[in-house]
Measured scan of single mutants.
Amino acid sequence: VEVSPDIYQQVRDELKRASVSQAVFARVAFNRTQGLLSEILRKEEDPRTASQSLLVNLRAMQNFLNLPEVERDRIYQ
Rank of each mutant, 00 (worst) to 15 (best):
Q77S: 13
D46G: 05
D73P: 00
R72W: 01
L15I: 15
L55Q: 10
T33W: 04
R17G: 01
D46K: 05
L36D: 15
A50M: 05
Q10P: 01
S19K: 14
G35K: 15
L15D: 00
N57P: 06
S38P: 04
D13L: 15
L65T: 01
Q34T: 10
K43E: 09
F30E: 03
P5F: 07
L54A: 11
L37K: 00
Q10T: 08
Q52W: 08
S38Q: 14
V28L: 09
I7T: 03
F25D: 00
R59N: 11
I7S: 02
D73S: 05
R42Y: 12
R72V: 00
S21H: 08
S53M: 07
A29L: 13
S19T: 14
R48L: 12
E44R: 10
D6V: 05
A29Y: 00
Q34Y: 08
R17Q: 00
V28G: 14
Q10L: 14
I7V: 05
M61G: 00
T49V: 12
M61F: 05
E44S: 11
E44A: 10
Y76N: 02
N57T: 09
A50L: 05
E39K: 08
I75S: 12
P5H: 07
D46W: 04
A26Q: 13
E69W: 06
D6G: 11
Q77W: 03
E2T: 08
D46T: 06
V20E: 03
V3Y: 04
N31H: 09
Y76R: 01
T49H: 14
N31F: 06
R42T: 14
R42A: 13
V28W: 03
P47I: 12
R42P: 01
L55M: 13
V70E: 12
Q52A: 11
F64D: 00
E39N: 08
R59E: 12
Y8F: 05
N57A: 08
L37Q: 02
N31T: 07
A60P: 05
E44K: 07
Q9S: 12
L54P: 00
D6E: 11
I40F: 06
R32K: 15
S19A: 15
S19N: 15
K16F: 13
F25I: 01
V56K: 09
L15E: 03
K16V: 11
L41Q: 03
A50W: 03
T49M: 14
G35D: 12
A50R: 02
T49K: 09
E14V: 02
V20D: 01
I7M: 09
Q9G: 13
R74I: 08
V70F: 13
P5K: 12
V28F: 04
T49R: 11
F25K: 00
Y8P: 01
Q62R: 12
S51N: 11
S53Q: 14
E44Y: 02
Y76T: 01
Y76V: 00
A29W: 03
F64T: 02
S53F: 05
Q77D: 11
Q10F: 13
R42L: 11
Q62L: 05
R12Q: 03
Y76K: 00
S4E: 07
R72L: 00
S38L: 10
M61N: 02
L15S: 01
R27P: 03
K16P: 00
M61P: 00
I40A: 03
V3D: 06
A23F: 13
R48P: 05
R72Y: 01
K16C: 15
A29C: 13
V56Q: 15
N63Q: 10
L41F: 03
Q77N: 12
V11S: 00
S19H: 14
F30T: 04
Q77R: 12
K43S: 12
N66V: 08
L58W: 01
D13H: 13
P68M: 05
R17E: 00
L15H: 03
R48C: 11
V24L: 10
N63F: 05
N63I: 15
E69Q: 12
T33D: 10
K43A: 13
T33M: 05
L67N: 09
D73C: 04
A18D: 05
D13W: 14
S38D: 09
T33L: 03
R48A: 12
R42F: 13
R72E: 02
S51D: 11
V70C: 11
N31V: 05
R32F: 12
P47Q: 03
R32S: 13
V11W: 01
R17Y: 01
S21G: 07
G35R: 11
V56Y: 07
P68H: 05
V1I: 09
R74F: 09
E71T: 10
S19V: 14
M61Q: 01
L54F: 04
R32G: 14
E69G: 08
A26H: 02
R48F: 06
P5C: 15
E45I: 12
L55V: 10
R72N: 00
S53E: 11
I40G: 02
L55K: 08
L37Y: 03
P68E: 12
I40K: 02
D13V: 15
N31L: 06
E44L: 05
S19D: 15
L67E: 09
D46S: 10
E69F: 07
A60R: 11
Q34K: 08
D73E: 05
V56N: 04
L67I: 11
R48K: 14
N66A: 07
A60T: 10
Q22N: 09
N66G: 10
R32V: 06
M61E: 00
V11A: 06
V1Q: 12
A23Q: 13
L58G: 01
F30H: 01
K43G: 07
V70N: 08
Q52I: 14
F30W: 03
S4A: 06
S4M: 12
D73I: 03
Q34C: 07
E44V: 06
G35E: 15
D13I: 15
S4R: 09
Q22Y: 14
V1E: 13
E71Q: 12
Q9H: 14
R59H: 09
E71M: 06
L67C: 05
V20Q: 05
G35N: 15
I40N: 02
A50I: 07
E44M: 08
L15Q: 04
E45P: 10
S51M: 04
V3S: 06
K16N: 09
I75P: 01
Y8W: 04
S4Q: 07
N66L: 14
V11Q: 03
A29P: 02
N63D: 07
E14N: 01
V11N: 00
Q52R: 14
V56L: 13
P47V: 12
S53W: 08
L55Y: 11
E45H: 07
A18W: 03
